[in-house]
Structure formats: structure tokens, C-alpha cells
Amino acid sequence: MINLVRNEMLKLLRKKRLYVIILIIAFLVPLFTYAQFKEIQEQREKMGNQDWRTVLQQEITDTQNRLSSSRIQDEWRKYLKIRLSQQQYYLENDIDPRAPGAPTFMRIFVENSIDLLLPLLVMVIVADLVSSEASGGTIKLLLTRPVKRWRILLSKYIAMLMSVSFIVLSVAVLSYVISGLVFGYGGWNMPLLTGFAVSGDELLTDRVHIVPQWQYILMEFGLVWYVSVIVGTLTFMLSVLLRSTAAVMGIMLASLIAGAILVNMVSSWESAKYFFMVNLNLTNYVSGMATPIEGMSLGFSMAVLAVWGLAGFIIAFVTFSKRDIY
């Protein structure tokens, strides 16, 4: 099996797709770094000559005032207390919450690339994994060797998992290293709030707590990896079913973009939440953004993705081991 996986990795490397992916990331990261840099500059200009510490101090006093009012609900009070401790941490540790370091950039970058950019990069690698063997005719040699078909497909699947992991890793490393040149490499321990939940129109804050940024980023990268694997599995299935790599890319691209559009317009179409493509934005649950459709939660989305992924995996293996090759 190791030999088979090595074969697949060799072919992947020789096709030079992975280099292209790295180049794309290495090109995009400086672009976004510059955009982020510009935004911070503009914010600073708005504040004028005021020191950020003064502004933060004002915010803290503001929160304290609201806390001391007797009319607020218990839950809200708890939330405000957490906010207060976060703000105080910034002040004590001399962290400007509006001037982030490389870890913050990294976090923002993955949060924004989880639903489209990363799935696209994954797709570029995975789309021709099986279909290129079919269209190039090499599948005839591959399947007439003394190796069972499912083992050949499994070796390709493992190669897919490895390259997806590699993509996620290189996004992390490149975004950290490149943006660090501008923003500095500190900020791993910056406290962040998580645990928001949405119920109806209300933002539930009873489970909100503070985690250090490194933990937050680790969590988000875990989710990003999970989403990438599912997208990879579905692309893999299409690559088994179709001979043409272009068709695989076309279908995958259409559904990913449809997902991005649907998210903005399906709030009243409840059953749309079972589509895999509206569930890709897992990091939103961590940062506490509103869900596109009511009733969606981190667990729900992960379960929907798992079902899609499993179905894709089974379809791929069953068709591949039974199919007649002409």
C-alpha cells in the first residue's frame, strides 16, 4: 500500500499542480496583507491623534457603567463581564486590538477563504486524480496489474488526503510568514471571544468564553481541514464518475459558487440547509456570525458534510471497483 501511495504522490508532484497552488497562495497573501494594512491605516487616521490606549480605556469605563446599572439581565451581565476582562487584558498587555499581528491576519484569511478559495484550490488538485488516468488511457495499465481495484483507489484517496493537508498547511505557513513581515509575528496569546449561539433573532451569549488566539486558530484550521477533506472527497467522487477533468471542475465550481450565492438568499427555504455547499462556512460558528438558515449549528453542518462526504466516498469506491472500462 505504501508503494501505491508513493506512486500517486510521485505523479502528483510531477504534474506540478502543488507548486501552482503554492504560487497562488504566495501571490494572494501579500495582496490581502496590503489590503489589511491599508484598512488599519485608515482607521488610525479616523481616530486622529488619539492614542489607542485612551480609546480602549474609554470603552472599558463604558462597559463598567453598563454593568453597574441594575436593570440589565443576568445573561447580558455575564457577557459584558467577559467583554470587560478581554478589554482589560488588551490594556494590561499593551495589545492594540485594531493593529493585529500575523496570527490575526492568518485567522481572518482562513475565515474568508474557507467557503470558496480553499475549496477551489483543493478542487484544482483533486479534479484530475482519477479522471486523468481515464482520459489518458493509463487506467488500462493501472487496472491490469496484480492489485485489486479498491486498493488502487484507496491509494489515490490517501494521496488526496495528504495533498489537502499540505494545502491547508501551506495556507497557514505562508499567511503567517508573509503577513508577519508587515504586522509582526506576535499575538498568539491575544484573547478572543467564542461560544456565541443564535436562536431565532437572539444572540445567545450564555456560553461565551475567552480563548487565547492560538487555540482559536487551531480550532479554525481544524474546521478548514475538515471542510477541505469533504470538498476533496466530493471532487474525488466526480473524478471517478467522469472521464473529463473539465467536467469535474465545471460541476464542482458551479456547486461551490451556487453555495456562495444560496447562502445569501435561502433564509426562508429551510430544506436548503441539507446542501453541502451552504454548510461550508464552519468558522462562522466559532466567531459567532448569524447562520444563513435557522436551525443550523456547528454540529448540524459538520453532520451534513459528513453524510455528503461518506456518500461520495462509497459511490466512488463502488463504481470504481465494478465499472467496465472501455
Binding site: G136, G137, T138
Partner: peptide, 12 residues
């Protein structure tokens, strides 16, 4: 066997 054309990996 060689089935139809000898199709090997051109990039290797």
C-alpha cells in the same frame, strides 16, 4: 498486456 495504444505517463 497493451490494450490499444501504449499509454504511459507522458510527464514521467
Amino acid at each position: 498486456c497493451i490494450v490499444e495504444n501504449p499509454e504511459l505517463y507522458p510527464y514521467l
